[in-house]
Write a protein that binds this DNA or RNA. Structure first.
Ligand code: FES
Ligand code: FES
Lengths: 163, 163
DNA sequence: CAAATACAGGACTCAGCCGGTCCTGATTGA
DNA sequence: TCAATCAGGACCGGCTGAGTCCTGTATTTG
């Protein structure tokens, strides 16, 4: 039903938890806090590591920690880390060299791609730091977000300037 | 991958095809036109009928036709007809009396619900009549994103001017 | 060094559901 | 009445999502 997988949900939960501190925390620890079964927690974190969203530290005092500040990680990235490229429809996937089995090119395709891009950009604009706040006015997303968008835009520019 | 099911894709294709005329067309016919296997075509159309999106006419000259003008049918409705309620995450589903197995209420939930609502509204705003046009500037959807969006906007304007 | 703790990587299982088929009616036009 | 069409299920095979487990490697600490 236009679902993201449960594992991706876990990824977000784990990431928000990690966002609350800088010291690495172990799988055991995180599992206990979040209620996600330990082996699964491990699996998800490993994917996140491969995607470069978290850093792993081995050894006795090891564990996982975010690789970047929470406002530099988007929900879209988290989704992509677990599920691969975001594609609402099979023929909406622009990366993959997929050829639709139906009528060669049925116009619908281009429109799906646009919808897809819109959704993706929306998810891109929601950052982990937003998710961490229980009921933040984070997701205007649609229309009338002028001010929120502008604020974000300004922030982005600021960040760029600092880099 | 944040996918809608293939069947839903079929539903959209079939609906756009139906939008091109008012006389009922049979499953056999539609299957031939779209390239969707006949039994599957039938299945999808049956779901759409139950959802009230198309009318069915039995008998020798029967078939399916849209129950409303194409600009009165949204993509969201088509999705819902096939997949049920739109819910990005399990805990984003507001209808269902679902209780998250993780930490009772982890803040993330409210945010998912917002994202969910945003996506849903976006899909609601895209109508079948939009999908029927091969490359319509149909999907502003989320406005004023970044420069990419702006460029896109420019393209759209150009198209409008040409029309 | 050796033991204990943690992550890395991948094989494996199990269940659910998606895509697809088919069969048995009920309706209706010719 | 006959043929075409939809209605409503039952049914099935395969994929993949969720979860587990095992083996190996790195790091800390005594
Ligand atoms: S549905 Fe894939 S090109 Fe039309
Ligand atoms: S993930 Fe469901 S309430 Fe937090």
């Amino acid at each position: 039903m236009l679902r993201i997988s449960k594992l991706t949900d876990y990824a977000v939960v784990l990431a928000t938890e990690l966002a609350s501190g800088t010291a690495p925390r172990s799988v055991t620890r995180l599992s206990a806090i979040t209620g996600i079964p330990a082996p699964t927690t491990s699996k998800v974190l490993k994917s996140m590591t491969r995607a470069g969203l978290v850093d792993s530290v081995r050894g006795k005092t090891g564990g996982y920690r975010l690789s970047r500040p929470a406002d530099r990680i988007s929900v879209a990235e988290l989704i992509r880390a677990i599920e691969g490229s975001i594609a609402v429809t099979e023929c909406a996937d622009e990366n993959d060299g997929y050829v639709c089995s139906l009528q060669g090119d049925c116009g619908v395709r281009a429109n799906w791609q646009r919808i897809n891009r819109a959704v993706e950009e929306a998810l891109e604009s929601v950052r982990l730091s937003d998710m961490a706040v229980p009921n933040s006015p984070l997701v205007p997303l649609l229309r009338s977000q002028d001010e929120a968008e502008e604020k974000r835009h300004a922030e982005a520019l600021e960040v760029e300037n600092h880099g």
